[in-house]
Design a protein around this nucleic acid. Structure first.
Lengths: 367, 367
DNA sequence: TTGAAAGCGCTAACAC
DNA sequence: GTGTTAGCGCTTTCAA
């Protein structure tokens, strides 16, 4: 009776060994190396464990001893829950989860609130490696990860030269998309892009801010556009580029509105993501602009909803990207690090791009 | 020169303390309790750490000592990546991630492949608690979780009485939906449901299998239907119920086909999820059946795509469910455990349900 | 097949 | 403000 009044101190491997009158090695073997002891003894150990309420070797203590956590950490730029809102991020997560599953490894989502500079969560993460997905290049969490003595793979980030990297050719892909628009005859265009840095700037973007953008992906997509249009004789510094901090359709819509208010003459609205482009389409519709007859709208990513809308975009293999990141991290071959993987993208000509209004006629009368 | 040939053994807190000629406590304090030592000393510690390449206290060793992992584990029934395919699961994950974020806690996705009986991943997980989401009640991973001496919250599972639980009234909600259909005049109906147990059974379901279903959610939804239709004088044992192992639209379509082939006279196709219902709609369309004129189709969950399709369904607060699960787990108040939370659902009458074909006419001429 | 010894790297009382 | 002591619970040579 009195016994049950005590807070029963949970049994440990040592206490179990003592109870059984065997060594700790034997108990450990009963769990980890069944072939190292007789079946009867093993039974006896396991039975006694059950009787004493011993839940098996403590995973943390085991990790300390074996120097293996059995998990990889994932660092995202956004509030953790953002990952479950953005279709491209979900695809990436799925691919990464697939790779982890194959390896029997856990996937730890590290809470890295971009608002706070608190990197303790990175220090606290008991993981065998990190995947860093699309964070600004000056993010303190990224710096904290790089200081941890575990392998790291960065994704949609600049090549650091010191850790593995997987990504796509954002610049080249956007350049190609721009060439398509230029071929159609577009010269007067506007751009809606995602956040370029950690500070909120919902408005027009100066050329300086474009160049200095801390998000690798956005910087390169813009630079691909600038290059293509500059080559076509367009003064890029005069092109309205609008930035939005939050990544959702509402941002796409309001961004499009801001661009169109500034220059109602533009013939194409180039968005740096499908989600923004979908939002831009709703704004176009709201203004009675037919796509692509009155205005061309393009995206980037190749998400399902964009496909259904017939969006002209660049499709990137988000799931493969996640899987590749996981594979890279879990492939322990240190000798070949650091590695850099570029995945292929595909320009999708949908039904949201066409010649500028009047553009076709110009051709009829052209040289 | 010779030095650099050695594998540099990474610095530890102890070696750093030795180098500095201070105690380990002081070094520890430099990281964990800045107020416990002079700023100058702290600087010296941190500088030396940087010089020696000491990455800060090892998280695993710290966890062992503090008995806190700083993470919660999530156990899902499906391949890990499944969670990123199912809209309802994504919503749950988002809510859970939100709760974790608020608490500064990591979220560890535990790889629990339902094919393998390997529960080692559960044993290996260094977490302060588990959330178990919609696994069969006889899943060995669940059993393994329950043996771990950490708090647990089960979600969309039977109330075990020993651990916290969050869920909805699946039975009552489906009963209400059935009443709606009965009120419209439906008596001859068919059902497409998700998997009922761990074994694959893509086909008709016996009443026995319905009762014995190992997935709490499915069992209760079916039982709500059975109850309502039995009350309306329908012999439930004669109602075609088709099960699908994989949860996607294709399953909904093929399940609907199987039901319709068996009894082309049914006036309503009741699906136990929106995803299945969306698939069933495509099959109806393929057969030239207009919804709801020729056939009524209903779902369950209230996902976005269903809403857009105007689906008649039961909306459940998936995000809130995840958040509630996280809150329950992270609220350390042991005194009030175990707790059970039921979230409210809402019957959504969409445009996919209507009176049975001829049902209206019957009424005109009826008594 | 089993056991003894030696830590893995750290934190938390408590004393100085 | 700083140090001493005592483990957290486990695995793993190595020897018996």
């Amino acid at each position: 009776m009195a016994r049950s009044m005590h807070v029963r101190r949970p049994a440990t491997l040592a206490s179990l060994a003592a109870e059984l009158g065997v060594s700790r090695t034997t108990v450990s073997n009963a769990y980890n190396r069944p072939d190292q002891l007789s079946p009867e003894l093993r039974r006896r150990v396991l039975d006694t464990a059950r009787r004493l309420g011993y839940p098996g070797p403590d995973p943390v203590a085991r990790s300390l001893r074996t120097r293996k956590a059995g998990a990889v950490g994932l660092l995202l730029t956004e509030n953790l829950s953002y990952a479950f809102r953005d279709p491209a991020a979900i695809g990436f997560l799925e691919g990464l989860a697939l790779a982890c599953e194959d390896a029997g490894t856990g996937l730890l989502l590290v809470p890295a609130n971009p608002e706070r500079e608190d990197v303790a969560s990175v220090h606290r993460a008991g993981v065998d490696g990190f995947v860093v997905y699309s964070v600004p290049d000056d993010d303190p969490h990224l710096a904290a990860v790089l200081e941890r003595p575990v392998p790291t793979v960065v994704c949609d980030q600049p090549d650091l030269g010191t850790v593995d990297r997987v990504g796509i050719d954002d610049r080249g892909a956007m350049y190609e998309l721009a060439k398509h628009l230029i071929g159609l005859g577009h010269r007067r265009v506007g751009v809606v892009c995602m956040r370029l840095a950690r500070d909120r700037n919902d408005g027009f973007v100066t050329p300086d801010r474009q160049h200095a953008a801390h998000f690798h992906v956005q910087r390169n997509r813009l630079s691909g556009l600038a290059e293509a249009f500059s080559e076509a004789g367009v003064d890029w510094s005069q092109v309205p580029v609008v930035e939005r901090f939050d990544h959702n359709m509402a941002s796409g819509a309001s961004g499009a509105a801001q661009v169109l208010d500034k220059d109602p003459q533009i013939t194409a609205l180039i968005c740096t993501s499908d989600v923004l482009a979908l939002g831009a389409m709703t704004e176009a519709a709201r203004r009675g602009l037919r796509v692509p007859h009155d205005i061309t709208v393009t995206g980037f990513d190749g998400i399902r909803a964009g496909e259904e809308a017939g969006l002209t975009t660049v499709r990137q293999p988000v799931l493969e990207k996640g899987r590749a990141a996981g594979k890279l991290l879990l492939d322990a071959n240190e000798r070949t690090r650091p590695r850099s993987v570029n995945l292929a993208t595909e320009l999708i000509i949908g039904k949201t791009s066409g010649p500028p209004r009047g553009g076709a006629e110009e051709r009829w009368f052209g040289p």
